[in-house]
Design a protein around this nucleic acid. Structure first.
Lengths: 135, 135
DNA sequence: TCCTTTACTTTTGAATTGCAAGTAAAATCA
DNA sequence: TGATTTTACTTGCAATTCAAAAGTAAAGGA
């Protein structure tokens, strides 16, 4: 992580925030999977171990990508939500989806999703964004 | 790396190819920095160590992202070039540049580059692409 | 009061990384 | 032609990170 060095390449900066496999998968589950709680992220199909999940959540929060809040009035439960900074990543993530769907001969990307993205990528991003606009 | 499992999420597939910091920095230097030789990549500002560089080049080649060819007639020198698959990543990388330039208060992204990208991102990608169309 | 849920932390061995040095073959130089 | 340099790596080793499994602590619910 080069956050304070003389290295100010925008690609490098982006990688410092989401250049780790698990960080992006957490964001994916948050943005597209409707996941908001620790145990929901822990149940990702890729099988993240809980120590890594905890460290990545902390890292994402430190990088201003997600916020951690109490779930409803007093309780020992938390909600993780994307910040605007994370939502601004949607165009990049959508390009990732398109690239993966295009180049993986066995892609499992739902055709209706890839079709919607192809037709109107910005509109697709806006739709996802709206789901978090109230928070 | 999940290349053969039941996990066929397009984001996950993309991460299997470039979800590592160094892979993407090599691609960056190749696409935008005009680098083609081993020792040029080894001299990246981020300081990749040579064992990691060698393993990443091998990995990128195995993933169909780059090709390794002999440099000119007989010689012990190689040229690394992006494949079409890698060039198809340009839209994603361009989104990374925009995100990084936008969110890093101390970004070193050249204003003329970010301006050109903002004005016509697809055109910018096409310009980069053309440089490799002859190979 | 005991059990469960939730969000972690800890432990341990394995894998990966970073750093430095070494190597091998071809090309260039003297 | 022999010596040096260039190029593309490999090797060794300590340190960090990771995965897997188990443990923990506080709050809620039965």
């Amino acid at each position: 992580m080069n956050t304070d060095t003389l290295d100010r390449c925008p690609i490098s900066y982006t990688l410092d925030h989401v250049g780790d496999r698990w960080s992006l998968l957490i964001l994916r589950d948050m943005l597209f999977g409707g996941k908001r709680h620790y145990d929901e992220f822990a149940a990702s199909p890729e099988g993240i171990s809980t120590n890594i999940l905890a460290s990545r959540l902390k890292q994402l929060e430190a990088g201003g990508m997600i916020s951690k809040r109490q779930y409803q009035e007093n309780r020992r439960r938390y909600v993780y939500l994307p910040t605007d900074k994370a939502l601004d990543l949607l165009p990049m993530i959508i390009e990732m989806i398109q690239w993966g769907a295009r180049h993986d001969p066995h892609t499992g990307a739902p055709p209706e999703v890839t079709a919607a993205i192809r037709k109107d990528p910005a509109g697709f991003a806006a739709t996802v964004r709206e789901k978090f606009s109230s928070q």
